[in-house]
């Protein structure tokens, strides 16, 4: 599916440019896009190194397993395939916590570690059930304080920059719930298909 989407976007764009004479813009966008990706990846090094280093210390100090003990009842329900004491749990929880506090750059490294652990569990290059659940929750964005948006609103002289915090939390909660439900639905559909 991702192959189709990837090639599809480029093909549609180029064919559209042929018809509408926007080839110049395409050329420009092409290299700008590549440039942006490199800047982004290089920029990621700083946060990845820092947070992965710190999280390794936290893991060795036993803080990650403490965190997963605390929230175990909820998370074991969400991820029934992951053994209770598995390090993946700790990373999943750190990722969720970082997201909740709006620490997007701390959430990514922990999320990647969680994915690594889950890959070891499944031992294949196909997305496992837990991975899909984990990522779908991530894409629904668990935010308590949307800091970037608040900053933009302040820049444009909002009388109440934080008034959207409530609606954002409500919307996020709703989206996450929907994501979990849709994920379950698709999982049961897969199971049924396999039985046939």
């Amino acid at each position: 599916m991702v192959n189709l989407i990837w090639a599809g976007m480029a093909i549609i764009g180029i064919v559209y440019a042929m018809i509408n004479g926007t080839m110049d813009e395409v050329n420009e966008a092409l290299f700008e896009g590549a440039d942006e990706a490199v800047t982004l990846s290089i920029g990621l090094i700083s946060v990845l190194v820092f947070w992965l280093g710190l999280m390794r210390v936290a893991e060795k100090a036993g803080l990650l397993s403490m965190l997963s003990n605390l929230f175990r009842p909820i998370v074991t329900r969400l991820f029934p395939e992951i053994p209770k004491d598995h390090p993946a749990m700790g990373y999943i929880l750190s990722n969720f916590t970082a997201n909740l506090f709006g620490l997007g750059n701390a959430a990514t490294p922990m999320g990647i570690k969680a994915m690594e652990q889950m890959k070891q569990l499944s031992g294949s290059d196909k997305a496992s059930r837990s991975m899909i659940t984990f990522l779908v929750i991530n894409t629904s964005s668990l935010t308590l304080i949307p800091t970037t948006v608040i900053a933009i609103r302040m820049q444009y002289d909002s009388i109440a920059p934080t008034e959207i915090v409530g609606t954002t939390i409500l919307a996020t909660g709703f989206t996450s719930l929907a994501a979990i439900l849709v994920d379950r639905l698709f999982y049961y559909r897969r199971v049924r298909k396999q039985k046939k």
């Binding site: 976007m9 440019a17 092409l30 700008e32 590549a34 942006e36």
Partner: peptide, 9 residues
């Protein structure tokens, strides 16, 4: 890059 092509065109 793929997204950029789609947007740029």
């Amino acid at each position: 890059v793929s997204i950029a092509i789609l947007r740029g065109s």
